[in-house]
Design a binder for these strands. Structure first.
Lengths: 210, 210
DNA sequence: AAAGCTTTGTAACACTTGTTACTGCCCTTC
DNA sequence: GAAGGGCAGTAACAAGTGTTACAAAGCTTT
């Protein structure tokens, strides 16, 4: 664990802090597709991603979903930060996009580290900064792009996160993530295929040129 | 200024910090409608709102706009925080919604206070927290609501921020804020009037029951 | 290979939102 | 009070997206 920790966070934190994290944190391994945090859960610790990727979703009262953004190694979930500090319920759902390893840090340590370590403060601020930027990006996407463009962006992002030009998704899955209907997704994907931008297969979409 | 400062932030900050803010901050008064920060500006200081309200907008490459949220007294702009710490350009536009008074604090002080004052740290975190929540709310609005509901929410929010059931806006203005067209706004407003929810006047909309 | 399930393709239609065009109203200015 | 500019109302149409319904294709299980 220490090796991985150092690999992912060594350039961010001083040794003393790394030691403390290693000491009081617990490693948690999660399989792709597993739910990590559910809407309304109380958050008991703060996750530091070692590898893998996590998908953050929003859900409204009627059970409608929307993908917000992905989180990768060297990152934490600022929403979780939020919940930790405010002792409030989670406003989002977190699902493992790929097999994922993370270190869970007890909330109690956070306040202490914030006072003691400048690098920790910077990390937390940086984290908030990144999250706000992602949220702005998400807003741009749903406010200014039409569905064709949103689907293209989705496929690009997903291919990048998984480091694989073959995106493993059903049309229904994509529809859920983008908060639209399966038929709409199928229709647009077919058009993208005719334009030579993608190649469609069962449960899989190959990104050619988006 | 000290009185106002204490009024707005006294319950948040200890006296020593209040003194320092009063010492190194400069008061800035802004008329309603005036632009405070423009997309792409470098941010030179951090604003602490004493009274009034500020409208935060997003703009895409084609000049299309979208209202993100409002900021009120006792608040700061986390986007500005973001820019300050990251030394990056502003990703948003800030316009005074009403006549506004704020204290501008030089960036240099921020880092220092973050280390020295727990209350300042909490304030900054709280601020980020609020901003993320607002952004989530904004996303919910544009992702899950249709235009009728968005316009109703807009009028409710605007009436609340201005503490006036008579919202002073043209239909064109609303169309800009919601990133739609004037005709659409007029059409929906007329329907809301027929439903007895609002009363339309020139340059003014009276909120009756939304 | 037959049955049953999931996934995808497609047509036809409905609804929401955006666009264009024109009209009349209100306010300001001369 | 005449002229001009900004604002609002409305119709007709276009485009985008969502819905329903059904058929076909592909995979899994038996």
């Amino acid at each position: 664990m220490k090796t991985e920790l150092k690999e992912a966070y060594g350039f961010l934190f001083e040794n003393e802090l790394l030691e403390e994290i290693a000491e009081c944190g617990t490693v948690r391994k999660i399989d792709a597709g597993e739910r990590i945090i559910e809407f309304g859960d109380y958050v008991t610790g703060m996750p530091l991603l070692l590898n893998g990727a996590i998908k953050i979703m929003r859900e409204d009262g009627d059970g409608d979903e929307l993908l917000l953004y992905f989180i990768e190694r060297g990152d934490t979930c600022a929403m979780t930060l939020n919940c930790c500090m405010g002792q409030t319920k989670s406003e989002i759902r977190a699902v493992a996009e790929t097999d994922t390893t993370m270190i869970m840090v007890p909330i109690a340590k956070m306040e202490e580290w914030t006072a003691r370590f400048k690098s920790w403060r910077n990390f937390v601020f940086e984290s908030y900064h990144n999250r706000l930027s992602e949220m702005l990006d998400t807003i741009d996407t749903i406010a200014f792009l039409n569905m064709d463009q949103r689907i293209m962006k989705y496929l690009r992002d997903k291919a990048k996160i998984n480091r694989d030009e073959n995106v493993q998704s059903t049309h229904q899955q994509i529809a859920y993530d983008l908060h639209t209907s399966r038929v709409v997704v199928s229709r647009i994907l077919k058009k993208l295929e005719l334009d030579g931008k993608i190649k469609l297969h069962r449960n899989q979409i190959r990104v050619i040129d988006l």
